[in-house]
């Protein structure tokens, strides 16, 4: 089976245009609702491999970089990937919390990047039922109190209902599509499902843009190339 290594460019290459794009994402999330800050953020997309997980880990890294307390929760219980992104083993996680009733605080991994991670753990049999449970909702509410930001990674919208269920318990949803890969109809259908479910769509992210080919992103690329933009 093929596995991709997820790059956390914000950590690995902080001055890259990619990192700047994620910083801009963070800024735009912050600006989208000034009065009621969005703190529990779900990353999802219509189809697999659109860049959800990459967006989630990089966004979390931007928060960590800013000195915020951030946790990333892997709610993709069917095909968990966060452990690969952070090079952890998926031994403990939500499974232990749900099935063995362990305290989730003990299950949280502390990455050296400053990001806390709650993995999925062993495979759960009925993810959609688990995700709807009050236990999960309560956990999210607790995390909201304990952390500045909670970034949630979920399965694709069109594959399973999980993403729709989670969209109800988060503050906002970032909808990811991949450049020259995600089909427009799929992206639209997925977004429609989310909005019909009452999800708060913060905005969309177009990932993996081939800058040489894409029309209309030169601006971003050019600006994000300024090397002197130091973060506080």
């Amino acid at each position: 089976m093929e596995f991709f290594e997820y790059r956390n460019v914000v950590i690995e290459d902080p001055n890259s245009p990619e990192s700047e794009a994620y910083r801009k994402l963070e800024l735009n999330i912050r600006m989208s609702n000034v009065d009621k800050p969005i703190r529990v953020i779900q990353c999802t997309s219509a189809t697999p491999q659109d860049g959800k997980t990459t967006t989630a880990i990089n966004l979390a890294a931007v928060y960590a970089e800013k000195g915020k307390k951030v946790i990333i929760v892997d709610f993709d219980l069917r095909r968990p990937k966060i452990q690969r992104a952070f090079h952890k083993s998926n031994d403990v996680g939500l499974y232990d919390f749900v099935v063995d009733d362990k305290d989730y605080h003990d299950l949280i991994l502390h990455d050296q990047s400053g990001i806390d991670i709650l993995l999925s753990g062993h495979r759960l049999s009925y993810p959609h039922i688990v995700l709807q449970s009050k236990k999960i909702q309560d956990m999210i509410n607790e995390l909201r109190k304990e952390y500045d930001f909670v970034v949630v990674d979920t399965p694709p919208v069109l594959s399973v209902t999980d993403a729709l269920i989670i969209s109800k318990i988060v503050d906002g949803v970032i909808y990811v599509a991949a450049y020259n890969q995600t089909k427009k109809d799929n992206a639209k259908a997925g977004l429609d499902q989310l909005t019909e479910n009452g999800a708060n769509i913060i905005g969309a992210v177009l990932a993996n843009i081939d800058v040489r080919k894409s029309h209309g992103v030169y601006g971003y690329y050019y600006y994000s190339n300024y090397p002197s933009k130091e973060k506080d």
């Binding site: 093929e2 596995f3 991709f4 290594e5 997820y6 790059r7 460019v9 245009p17 990619e18 794009a21 994620y22 801009k24 994402l25 735009n28 999330i29 989208s32 491999q49 860049g51 990459t54 967006t55 990089n58 970032i174 909808y175 599509a177 991949a178 450049y179 020259n180 890969q181 995600t182 089909k183 427009k184 109809d185 992206a187 639209k188 977004l191 769509i201 913060i202 905005g203 969309a204 992210v205 177009l206 990932a207 993996n208 843009i209 081939d210 800058v211 080919k213 894409s214 029309h215 209309g216 992103v217 971003y220 690329y221």
Partner: peptide, 30 residues
Amino acid sequence: NKYQSATEMEKHLGVKVIAAVPGTIKERKL
């Protein structure tokens, strides 16, 4: 029927594109 630009995506989805990220996924190593 695939997105070629952030503008195109914005027009089609009717949602603001809040980040346009240059190729990251592509660079993931197998």
